[in-house]
Design a protein around this nucleic acid. Sequence first.
DNA 1: TCTTGGTATCGAACCGTTTCGATTGGATCG
DNA 2: CGATCCAATCGAAACGGTTCGATACCAAGA
Lengths: 337, 337
Amino acid sequence: MATIRDVARHAGVSISTVSLALNGTGPVSEETRARIDAAVAAVRYTPNLMAQNLKRGQSKLVGMVLGDAANPFFGRLFGTIDKQISGHEHMLIVANLASDPDRELRTLTLLKRHRVAGIIMTPLRNDPEFAAYLNEIDVPVVLVDQDVDGTALDFVTSDHHRGTEMLTEYLARLGHRRIAYVGGQRSMWVARRRLEGFRAAMAKADIPVEPEFEVVADYSADLAYDNVIRLMSAPRRPTAILAANNYMAIGALQAVTDLGFRCPDDVSIAGIDVVAWSSIVMPRITTVEQPIEDLARVASLWMMEHVRGEAVRGGPRRCHIAEPRLVIGHSCAPPPK
Amino acid sequence: MATIRDVARHAGVSISTVSLALNGTGPVSEETRARIDAAVAAVRYTPNLMAQNLKRGQSKLVGMVLGDAANPFFGRLFGTIDKQISGHEHMLIVANLASDPDRELRTLTLLKRHRVAGIIMTPLRNDPEFAAYLNEIDVPVVLVDQDVDGTALDFVTSDHHRGTEMLTEYLARLGHRRIAYVGGQRSMWVARRRLEGFRAAMAKADIPVEPEFEVVADYSADLAYDNVIRLMSAPRRPTAILAANNYMAIGALQAVTDLGFRCPDDVSIAGIDVVAWSSIVMPRITTVEQPIEDLARVASLWMMEHVRGEAVRGGPRRCHIAEPRLVIGHSCAPPPK
DNA sequence: TCTTGGTATCGAACCGTTTCGATTGGATCG
DNA sequence: CGATCCAATCGAAACGGTTCGATACCAAGA
């Protein structure tokens, strides 16, 4: 592949002149500039960004770590962030954790070796060892969706607490009192926040939480399915089910349908984050939507500030907490008498 | 950030010895190796991959160009490819075209500047100018899903022709004769193949194709919605609708539902590529599934062969055409009497 | 005529690595 | 005991760029 040297030879000028001309970083006569442009075209020169970055001591690469690429939530998040970042020369180098927290550290180290200018990530782990690693990393990091306790990194999320609260309030207003909650692993920050929102709303509505109605299904459709089969087969069964993510909502819907119940006539179902293009299908599931575009916009904005050196690392922590939006579908109704 | 020089100084050896030791590429005494390891830990050394790549004249970066990151098809494709590629040191640098063909050339050029070792892409454009560009690019390319006429690049896809054929045969077997086809832009390779499969199956079943039943909806749910509203409002309406992708299938389902028809009692709906996690929802749409994991596996395998220099560019063209799988749901039934 | 100053161009050092061709010192061998 | 050989280590030259401090030239001012 052609190098700057080839261009220089072909144009009959020195290497430095070519560099000066191409970057517009020094005075070059009109005539020389024309000869250089011609040479560039003739030898098909494409500047080597690795060499440029090495010399300049900076990088045009931004790392992005996704919790689970197969989940449409992450697809839309990535798409929007990419639109903002992949501008002039910057590009995104993306890694997928596939929901496996063990890959997290290795992935971050690999990104460091690639000398990325910054990292946007949706973390899975939330433990002191991981927090310590993040505190020592010398690359700007913006966390999205989930927090890591004990760090002071920029953080963009939606109000998960408020999200389940809104859905719970809605179900309570419809008259439900036996509301089951299908949640994620308690060790995850987001799962805890969502559970707390549920409990807060239940308390406010003065409904006692029944412990057997609070189940953990690890954000998996299959586990949610099994749990809901169990819940709905018990003599005293819930009249409404609140699932803490899209997969579990669909698993729950599948379970009640397979048992011969109709939704919403026999049982109401609501879910967090059931993204638009699946909720078109019947029955449209009542959900709270995270404003993904908004999250992505703020995350990439802050990242670019870091990359351009405008934001200081170690300054006060920046948090952006977006308000989720209640989208009422056809999956909820007053409880059967 | 610490460089190899810092390690050398700290360990009291020369730079070359450190390099030799770290890469295991020369004899180093046990004792020196220990001192170097200690130094690496002490100064927190992380090798600079940009510098390594520059020197070695290779790159650990593989480019990936996605047609539309928000579509779960691409999310799963990316996730699986990432799992195969992101091995030891390789990583994926991903760009999203957001269905905009104008970004395609610019994106490829940017990847070239980053000196990626190869590019896996799902192309949007399919015209001579684009083919010419691809023929001149000096980076190994593997095409996925869609072909570009006039190139001889490695190509991995599923049998789109066979896919619509299977669905059409299935509808014909159920007794349908008024089958509407909602397809994508004819300029796209995949859209043409799918349309041909439909026509072939219709001919084989000896059903005349009615031109007004072949509509174009650009792979968009909204356009499909509008078209199906029109089709189903006409005096002579189809008894079955075949949608050529997931978005359009959902748009079609939405349209018939909004008009008060029931699916499958009043009208059958089948769609290509309605991915698993949305098809759980009721009614489960009958579909042909692309074996995404298989496509991803072959694509990354071939790419790694190129990266490792095992595959020759300019050799005979390699094609992998996977068989789609018919998944029968609850959205199709014999036509009303 | 001798500075001064600005414009266009160039040479060389450097970014962080790898790698090739020395150099050194001890062990082995005839 | 001198010639060989091998293991361990090092110095220096790249890789493809950027950038700083020359240098050469020419016009303007004293």
